[in-house]
C-alpha cells in the first residue's frame, strides 16, 4: 500500500491537522517508508490468535459506586480555556 499525497490529505483531515504542500510531500514519503517497514508483520501467520488489547490481565472489573462526590468546581474546569465567558467554553459558532 503506497502512501500518496491524497491519502495523507485524507488522514490529515480526519486528524484535524492542516498541512502545507511541502509537509504533505514530506509526510507522504516518511509514512510510506514507515508503513513499508511495518508491513513485515504480514509475514507472520496470526490465524486463530486472540488479540491482546491490554497487558493488564487482572480478571475482575473494578466498579464505582453510584455516588455523587465529584464536580462543583467550574472555575477549575474552565481555568485553562483559551476563551470562556460566564463559565462557558467559547468556540467559533457551530452550525448544523
Amino acid at each position: 500500500m503506497a502512501i500518496d499525497s491524497k491519502l495523507v490529505e485524507r488522514i490529515a483531515k480526519l486528524s484535524r491537522i492542516s498541512l502545507t504542500e511541502s509537509e504533505i510531500k514530506n509526510l507522504s514519503s516518511e509514512l510510506d517508508n514507515i508503513l513499508n517497514w511495518i508491513e513485515q508483520l504480514s509475514e507472520l501467520d496470526t490465524e486463530g490468535i486472540n488479540p491482546v488489547f491490554s497487558s493488564f490481565d487482572e480478571e475482575e472489573t473494578k466498579y464505582r459506586n453510584d455516588e455523587i462526590n465529584d464536580g462543583g468546581y467550574r472555575e477549575d474546569i474552565i481555568s485553562n480555556a483559551p476563551l470562556s465567558e460566564d463559565g462557558f467554553f467559547l468556540v467559533p459558532k457551530v452550525v448544523d
Binding site: 464505582r64 453510584d66 455523587i68 462526590n69 465529584d70 464536580g71 462557558f88 467554553f89
Partner: peptide
C-alpha cells in the same frame, strides 16, 4: 443514576452550567 457512567459528577437535570463536571468529564 445518581452519577455519570465513568465519573462521580451528578446527572441531575437543569443544574448551573459546567457545575456538574468532573475533570474526567
Amino acid at each position: 443514576s445518581n452519577s455519570k457512567l465513568f465519573s462521580s459528577a451528578s446527572t441531575k437535570f437543569g443544574g448551573e452550567h459546567n457545575t456538574q463536571v468532573s475533570f474526567v468529564d
